[in-house]
Design a protein around this nucleic acid. Structure first.
Length: 425
RNA sequence: GGAGAGAUGGCCGAGCGGCUGAAGGCAGCUGCCUGCUAAGCAGUUGUAUCGUUAAAAGCGGUACCCCGGGUUCGAAUCCCGGUCUCUCCGCCA
C-alpha cells in the first residue's frame, strides 16, 4: 500500500511513477476523496470535543443536584449530527481504501521505465552456454526415458501441472530442497522456518495477493483459506502487526514450501513438462530491514540466490525488470534465469524483489528506531533461493550424457546418495 | 464437532456508566543520592488520525481497553453479533 500522505504532498511524482506501471487512473479521485475526508474529520472532531466538554458539565451538574435537561437536549442533537458525519467519514474512508489497495507500488529510481518484458535489461551473465558433442534431449524426454517423472499418472491423479516424481527423481527433488535449505542456513546465516501452506485473507492481503490476484490462488471454500503461491506469504506475515526493535533487524528467514498456483489464463502455453506447473517446491528467502539498508540487502539477496546456481555450476543470467514488468508489490526486481540446453531457453528460477514499505504498510510491520524511539515501517524483501521445477529442467538438460543418463552434480551427491541417474525400469 | 472459561497499555494486573488513556506492580528512560553496584527518592514512558508548521519537533483536538453494531447527554464498564485464545470431551496423522 502506498502512503496517502506522501501522495498528498507529491501528487505529480506519484502520477508519473504510477503511469510507468500503467496504473494511474484513480489518483485524482483519491486526492479529492482525501480532501473531503480531512475537512469532515476536522469538523466532526470539533463537535466531539464540544460533546465531551458538555458531558463533563452535565456530570458535574448532576452531582451537585442541579438540573441539566437543556444541555442534555442540546447534546442529543449534537450526538445525532456526529453520528451522521461519522457515517459519511466511514463511507469516504471505504472509498479511499478501495482505491489505495489496488494501487501498485511505484518503481525505484534505478528501475528502467518500460512497458513489458521486452524492455527488461540483462545485467549479468554467469558461466557459459555449455556445449555437447551429441544430440541433446529436453527434460521431458530425459525424465520419461529414465522414469523419474510420471506426467501421465500425475494427470490421472490431479490433472496437468502436478508433477509426480518417482524413484531417483523423487530423491533428486528432495535433495535439491535440502541442499538449498542447508546452503542458506549454514553459509548465509538465515533462520529456517517451516510455514503453514494455507493462509487466511489478512495474510494474502498483506503481501499483495489480494485483492487483485485472488483468482491466481487456490481457495478452500469451506474455510476461506488460500493455498500459498509462495512461502513469501506466510513468512512475511510472521511479523504482521508487530513493532520490532531496531536492534533486532535485519531479520532473515529461509523457508521451504510447496507452492500452489492456478495459472488461470495461461492455458495452452508452456503447459507441457515442468516449466509451468500448479504445484511446485521452492526455497524462499525473506528479509525485514530498516529502510536505509534495503537496497544493499537487495543486492546481497540476489547474490545469495545466485550462489545456488553457481554451486550447481549452471549457466544463468540476471535480468533487471523494467517498470512495466514489475509485479504489483515490487519497487525493484531481479529475475534469475537459468539456461536449459536441451530446450535451448532460459527459465526464470528466481525473482528477487525489494518491496520497500509497500507490504509492511499492508501488514502493519513496523520497527522502533534506537536513536529517537520513533516508529516507522520496515522494508521487506524476498527472493526465491530457488524454485525447483525449472531448476530440475536445467539440471537434467545440463547434466545429461549421450547415454541419456544424468550426472548428479557433486554438491548434491551427499543429499542424493548416488552420482548417476540411469534407467531402472 | 460438543461443553465451559477468557480477551485491558512492552509485560503482569485492577477497574463503580461520568472525576480513567486508564489504579497498582514490573520493565524502560531521565534526574537526585552513592567510592562502584544494588537499594532508595522524584519525574517520565503507547498508537493512529486531524489541525497548526515549508517540514519536523512541540502544542491543541479526536479516536483506540479483541472486532463490529446498539442503548445513553456520556460506555473499558450495560445489550446484541462476530473473531481469537485456553481447558475438558469426541474424532484423528
Amino acid at each position: 500500500m502506498l502512503d496517502l500522505k506522501a501522495i498528498r504532498s507529491e501528487p505529480e511524482k506519484f502520477l508519473r511513477l504510477l503511469e510507468a506501471k500503467g496504473a494511474a487512473e484513480n489518483l485524482n479521485r483519491l486526492l479529492d476523496l482525501d480532501y473531503q475526508r480531512r475537512q469532515l474529520v476536522t469538523k466532526t472532531d470539533e463537535l466531539k470535543s464540544l460533546r465531551n466538554r458538555v458531558s463533563d458539565e452535565i456530570a458535574r451538574l448532576k452531582r451537585a443536584g442541579a438540573a441539566a435537561e437543556d444541555k442534555i437536549k442540546e447534546m442529543k442533537s449534537v450526538s445525532l449530527q456526529i453520528k451522521e458525519q461519522d457515517e459519511q467519514i466511514r463511507s469516504l474512508e471505504e472509498q479511499i481504501h478501495q482505491i489505495l489497495i489496488t494501487l501498485p507500488n511505484i518503481p525505484h529510481a534505478s528501475v528502467k521505465i518500460g512497458r513489458s518484458a521486452a524492455d527488461n535489461e540483462v545485467v549479468k551473465i554467469w558461466g557459459e552456454v555449455p556445449t555437447y558433442d551429441f544430440p541433446l534431449k529436453d527434460h521431458l524426454d530425459l525424465a520419461e526415458n529414465l522414469g523419474i517423472i510420471d506426467f501421465k499418472r500425475a494427470a490421472k491423479i490431479s490433472g496437468t501441472g502436478f508433477p509426480l516424481y518417482v524413484g531417483d527423481g523423487a530423491v533428486l527433488e528432495r535433495a535439491l530442497v535440502n541442499f538449498m535449505l542447508d546452503f542458506h542456513r549454514k553459509k548465509h546465516g538465515y533462520r529456517e522456518v517451516f510455514p503453514p501452506f494455507l493462509v487466511n485473507r489478512d495474510s494474502a492481503f498483506s503481501t499483495g495477493q489480494l485483492p487483485k490476484l485472488e483468482e491466481d490462488m487456490y481457495l478452500t471454500s469451506e474455510d476461506d483459506l488460500f493455498l500459498i503461491p509462495t512461502a513469501e506469504v506466510p513468512v512475511t506475515n510472521i511479523h504482521r502487526d508487530e513493532i520490532i526493535p531496531e536492534n533486532k533487524l535485519p531479520i532473515k528467514y529461509v523457508a521451504y514450501s510447496g507452492c500452489f498456483r492456478r495459472e488461470a489464463g495461461s492455458y495452452g502455453k508452456e503447459t507441457r513438462g515442468l516449466s509451468r506447473v500448479h504445484q511446485f517446491n521452492k526455497v524462499e528467502l525473506v528479509w525485514f530491514t530498516i529502510p536505509e539498508t534495503s537496497y544493499d540487502v537487495h543486492e546481497k539477496l540476489l547474490q545469495d540466490a545466485e550462489e545456488i546456481l553457481q554451486a550447481l555450476n549452471l549457466h544463468y543470467r540476471v535480468v533487471s525488470l523494467c517498470s512495466g514488468d514489475l509485479s504489483f508489490a515490487a519497487a525493484k526486481c531481479y529475475d534469475i534465469e537459468v539456461w536449459a540446453p536441451g530446450t535451448g531457453k532460459y527459465f526464470e528460477v528466481s525473482s528477487v524483489s525489494n518491496f520497500e514499505d509497500f507490504q509492511a504498510r499492508r501488514a502493519n510491520i513496523r520497527y522502533r528506531r534506537s536513536g529517537d524511539n520513533r516508529v516507522g515501517y520496515v522494508h521487506t524483501l524476498n527472493g526465491s533461493g530457488v524454485a525447483t521445477p525449472r531448476l530440475m529442467i536445467a539440471l537434467l538438460e545440463t547434466y545429461q550424457t549421450d547415454e541419456g543418463t544424468i550426472v548428479v552434480p557433486e554438491a548434491l551427491q551427499p543429499y542424493t546418495g548416488f552420482s548417476l541417474i540411469k534407467t531402472t525400469v
